[in-house]
Design a protein around this nucleic acid. Sequence first.
DNA 1: AACATGGCTGCTT
DNA 2: CAAGCAGCCATGT
Length: 122
Amino acid sequence: MIERSGAAPDGTDLRREAVWQVLAAIPPGRVTSYGQLARMAGLGRGARLVGRWLGQLPDDTRLPWHRVLNSQGQLSLPADHPAGREQLQRLLAEGVVVRNRRVSMARYGWPDHPHSIETASE
DNA sequence: AACATGGCTGCTT
DNA sequence: CAAGCAGCCATGT
């Protein structure tokens, strides 16, 4: 056998690891977007990849997948979907103010915007 | 190998 | 602020 591992030759698993790592770094009570996460993980425009991968996370994962929203600060998951409600509940539990399935990125967005003042840190 | 599908984004109407 | 459109990129048929 030349190769018996399940690792992809192009490093897909490594990229996924990078995503998990950045994801795990998101502080509680803060949120980020798929695109932002993708970029920070070195995926460039792999925003959709992030979404796909997050959906593949096991139910018992300890990763804060719920802190990932779309660029508009909205929960991309359908409201009537169990995962969607779960996400909403988790965010609320962390003190994030969600109005109409939407969150203020200026306030809770992570990392901090360079020229925007937030009050979320206090 | 071609085509369809996403837990997306940014720009323009 | 909502809706439409065109890129982007891995996965599944």
